[in-house]
């Protein structure tokens, strides 16, 4: 694995994403989700909301990094809150 140039933070990042996907799969098998409409303009499934949440979190981080001088951990906290509320009410 040396050629992949792993670092601890990226390993944590990818294992978090990986375990979220595994957990979503288990959740889906145990109780399949029904497409519904929340505050987003389109009706979404659980997986759609996860994708939207992760993609927008990436842009929240980029925006914080590029256009503000705020601490990046604030962006992470904001993203987690955003992701949870999107999953619940999106």
């Amino acid at each position: 694995m040396n050629w992949m140039a792993w670092t601890l933070p990226t390993a944590i990042f990818f294992s978090t994403i990986g375990s979220i996907i595994v957990m979503m799969t288990v959740w889906e098998i145990r109780s399949p989700c029904i497409e519904r409409k929340g505050f987003l303009p389109i009706s979404t499934t659980r997986g759609d909301r996860l994708f939207i949440g992760l993609l927008s979190s990436a842009f929240i981080h980029l925006f914080t990094l590029g256009f503000t001088s705020l601490n990046i951990w604030l962006a992470l906290i904001a993203s987690v809150i955003w992701l949870i509320s999107l999953m619940r009410w999106g």
Binding site: N2, W3, M4, A5, W6, T7, P9, T10, F13, F14, L62, L65, G66, I72
Partner: peptide, 25 residues
């Protein structure tokens, strides 16, 4: 995934890579 790993390091050669966080971004 490898590209993501590259993006947080300053790489000189295969044995000299230093973690720089989000500096490159």
């Amino acid at each position: 995934m490898t590209v993501v790993n590259y993006s947080v390091q300053d790489i000189f050669d295969q044995n000299n890579a230093y973690f720089v966080g989000l500096e490159w971004y």
